[in-house]
Simulated scan of single mutants.
Amino acid sequence: MATLSYVNVFAKDIVALSGFYQGVFGFPEIEAIRSPIFRGLDTGKSCIGFNAHEAYDLLHLSAFADTRGIKFLLNIDVDSRADVDRMVPVAVAAGATLVKPPYDTYYHWYQAVLFDPEGNVLRINFMMPGDEA
């Protein structure tokens, strides 16, 4: 079976953006793979990679470097509803923009939607047992 190892984000400032995710969620950096154009964070189940724009050339993606629009969103799962409520103001204080405050979804998640400091979509989620909705 295939598994997800990384979600990579092209970032204007890999140090600042990876630092945002470290500071808000406590994800440790994987220092062994650090480079001038890459930072990686261990989320416990998979990893988030942050690529500098120089990686476009490395990956033969330069023709697409100016593509606009939302192309992905990061979902960060936490252990409780209280964690969602606690982490939203921490993320906002660290430079995120709140798009949709915490709410109960029809699919039994409690989540908030934010933009990270570079405008990428981020959700902070707690997956509720079916009887809590």
Rank of each mutant, 00 (worst) to 15 (best):
G44N: 06
T3K: 07
F50K: 05
G44M: 13
F20D: 08
C47E: 14
V92L: 09
H60I: 05
K71E: 11
R34T: 09
P89M: 11
Q111M: 10
S46Y: 00
V78C: 15
I37Q: 09
A96Y: 04
A94G: 03
A93L: 09
F50N: 11
A16C: 07
Y6Q: 04
A94Y: 10
I70Q: 11
G26L: 07
I37L: 13
A133R: 07
P117T: 14
S46F: 01
H108G: 04
A65I: 02
S18L: 05
G130R: 07
D83Q: 15
V88S: 09
V15C: 02
P36I: 09
D131M: 00
I37T: 15
Y106C: 01
G49K: 08
D131W: 00
P102D: 01
D79P: 08
F64C: 00
R34M: 10
G95Q: 10
L61I: 03
V84D: 08
I48E: 00
L74W: 01
L4F: 01
Q22V: 02
I48Q: 01
G119A: 12
R68G: 00
K71H: 03
L73Y: 04
V7S: 09
F64W: 01
G40W: 02
A96W: 02
L114E: 09
A91W: 05
G119L: 14
E29Q: 15
V78N: 09
N75Q: 08
A55I: 15
R39W: 06
I124M: 12
N75T: 10
E29L: 13
Y21T: 04
T67W: 00
V113Q: 10
G40E: 07
I70T: 13
L73W: 02
P36G: 08
A133G: 15
P89Q: 13
R68K: 11
G119V: 13
D83N: 13
N125E: 04
Y110A: 00
L61F: 05
F10R: 01
P117L: 13
V84M: 12
L73T: 07
K45Q: 15
G130S: 14
S46K: 04
T43P: 06
D83G: 02
L17D: 10
Q111Y: 01
V15L: 10
V84H: 05
T97Q: 15
S5Q: 06
D79Y: 03
F115P: 05
Y107A: 00
Y107I: 00
V24E: 14
Y6T: 02
Y6C: 03
A91G: 10
I30W: 06
G19R: 03
F72R: 05
D77Y: 03
L41W: 05
F72V: 11
V99Y: 06
A55T: 12
V99L: 14
P101T: 08
I70A: 14
F72Q: 13
G19Y: 10
R68V: 00
D85R: 04
P117D: 06
D83C: 08
S80Q: 11
P101V: 14
A112S: 14
M1W: 05
D13H: 06
N125P: 00
F72L: 14
